[in-house]
């Protein structure tokens, strides 16, 4: 168990280093983009005087390195600062957005992950027969269609024609859980369709791989039912690759859903980040970028730890 703790500690230290490097990259990246925040705020109505005044007001005349370190010291003390464009406090703005994003990702994952694994098991059980082909066909089709198109199709059929669920997934604090779930039904459905195939195919492949082993044959010869063999003997030994794929998809559900957010007008992190990138609002871009990076690093770390725990050979290295 000690080795695990040591590994986690190492990983966390490495992650912090990574985050620092990422913050430099994001800052440099936003600097390279043409135009600056003052220009973007005033847009077509910019006059030279107004631009100069706004730049001075926002502290854009300091050299970039100074601005980076000012930001870094603030961030290390837990102060992410205020958005340059709207002047809002970034911490509070992001916390609402992030909780919305996590809310959507949670419900999508709650449906998609068990469904994908179950469908994967089912596909193995009926390998090369019609249920396997049907499952693969449908999930591969849904991952191949661009997600905004699936969004539009569901919106037209379910929101406009049948009027079962709303087309605008607007949630706010005044709603109870049931109203919120009703509101996000369509984006959850689309996200489920989008992430299903990847996880399902990996489950199927990983288990089929294990199914070739001699001990599975033994289990079959013992007279166990096929499904029991898969569930009790094959699945535990193929957990590592499945968890890896599941984590990648969870990370996607948190950081990669901006298209779905735009189509369904969902107030999540993706749209928030894109708006601020286009306005060159560096502090917000930094904050969002770091959160996204942390999500990726964290979920990958969980995947690694789970694969180690699930494999005795890695748990007790010689």
């Amino acid at each position: 168990m000690n080795s695990i703790l040591k590994l986690v500690a190492q990983r966390i230290a490495l992650s912090l280093m990574l985050l620092l490097m990422i913050s430099v990259l994001i800052f440099a990246g936003t600097m390279i983009l043409p135009g600056d925040v003052a220009q973007s705020i005033l847009g077509q109505s910019a006059t030279p005087e107004a631009l100069a005044n706004l730049r001075a007001d926002l502290g854009l005349n300091d050299p970039p390195v100074t601005r980076y370190f000012q930001w870094l010291f603030g961030a290390l003390q837990g102060d992410l600062g205020n958005a340059l464009t709207s002047g809002q406090d970034i911490t509070s703005a992001i916390s609402t957005r992030l909780s919305n994003t996590l809310f959507l990702a949670f419900w999508a994952a709650l449906i998609a992950v068990p469904l994908a694994i179950f469908l994967g098991l089912l596909a193995v059980r009926y390998k090369d027969r019609w249920p396997d082909k049907l499952i693969s066909g449908v999930t591969l089709a849904s991952i191949s269609i661009p997600e905004f198109l699936i969004g539009y199709v569901l919106m037209y059929l379910i929101a406009v024609k049948l009027r079962w669920f709303p087309s605008v997934a607007m949630i706010n604090d005044g709603m109870n859980l049931w109203q919120k779930l009703n509101s996000i039904a369509l984006p959850v459905a689309v996200l489920t369709l989008v992430v299903l195939a990847h996880m399902m195919r990996m489950t199927r492949a990983a288990i089929l791989n294990v199914m070739q082993s001699a001990y599975i044959e033994t289990a079959e010869l013992k007279g166990l039912s096929t499904f029991k063999v898969i569930w009790r003997h094959a699945f535990p030994n193929s957990i590592a690759p499945i968890v890896n794929v599941v984590m990648l998809n969870l990370a996607y559900l948190v950081v990669g859903v901006v298209v779905i957010e735009v189509v369904f007008v969902y107030p999540g992190m993706g749209q928030y980040l894109v708006d601020h990138v286009s306005k060159r609002d560096v502090p917000v871009v930094q904050a969002c970028g770091l959160i996204f990076a942390a999500v990726y690093i964290g979920l990958n770390m969980v995947a690694d730890i789970v694969s180690i725990l699930s494999n005795p050979r890695l748990r007790h290295p010689k």
Partner: peptide, 9 residues
Amino acid sequence: TARVAALQA
């Protein structure tokens, strides 16, 4: 598209 759909819905 989403704006038009919201009106239609």
